[in-house]
Design a protein around this nucleic acid. Sequence first.
DNA 1: TATTGTTATACTCTATAACTATA
DNA 2: TATAGTTATAGAGTATAACAATA
Lengths: 148, 148
Amino acid sequence: MTQATEVLDRVLHLATLVQSDLARFEREAGLTTPRVHLLWVLGEAGPSTQQALARALAVTPRNVTGLVDGLVASGHVTREPHPTDRRATLVTPTTQGARTIRELVESHDDLARRLFGDVAPERLTTFDEVLGATVERFAGLMAAEAAR
Amino acid sequence: MTQATEVLDRVLHLATLVQSDLARFEREAGLTTPRVHLLWVLGEAGPSTQQALARALAVTPRNVTGLVDGLVASGHVTREPHPTDRRATLVTPTTQGARTIRELVESHDDLARRLFGDVAPERLTTFDEVLGATVERFAGLMAAEAAR
DNA sequence: TATTGTTATACTCTATAACTATA
DNA sequence: TATAGTTATAGAGTATAACAATA
């Protein structure tokens, strides 16, 4: 196995570990990955139409209906009327939903601190630079694929 | 946002990009993520009982029944009798399944090469060392959680 | 005419519980 | 008695297609 493959495998391993940390959060909150993802988007974008959520999550509008139904049932969001467009609804976090979103962000930051907080700055910078260059290289590959 | 959080976000971003590359493979092969995962395990372990697959995939035996049903229907694996235990079946790749597994490994290696192949060795080494130390730190965190 | 969201339908992945055949 | 796999049942996530209300 080449070094490049070993490094990729380690990146994927780290990703599965982070995923397992998120799974713990989901278990404790009684939520699922797609619902947490939706809450995360709400936290970043604020109250949103279901169309906007469908685009952000890269799923169909029909799918968002189901996710929002579940989050309404669990008390995390409500459907509010859109102020100017009577077709649309604004999915809005409840008090409980807002608390969950805050806890999610805190959990994420806490994990980051525990994982990278005490890495020597110059090594972390090298790490981050290689990571950034890799992400850019990937974007190039994807663009080439799409143009094919 | 702290530097640690930015780095974690970039790791997750890279992970989603790699995931999208896998999704392309799945689309072209007419497969799903859990089925590809099962094929990957078969590629590493060789013909396996469904119990062994359930453990390797961390799902219930019932779930493996469904995944194997799908892969039998698509012509990627067969259920062969276990040579010594008549209760068990050996899930075995077909010629087509073996070809898919080879393509999967090649696609993975190819991606690794394109992502990391031309990074300067000393920078890649630093990258990998930080990555390895992070994974170890994570294992410690998880163990502490489990003991709690 | 186009857009927003829902109803109808279907498939995949996932789980628990009960059951059959075999060890 | 324990183990391997399946049947029965249920819920979540995903999709496409057709539809109603509104823009």
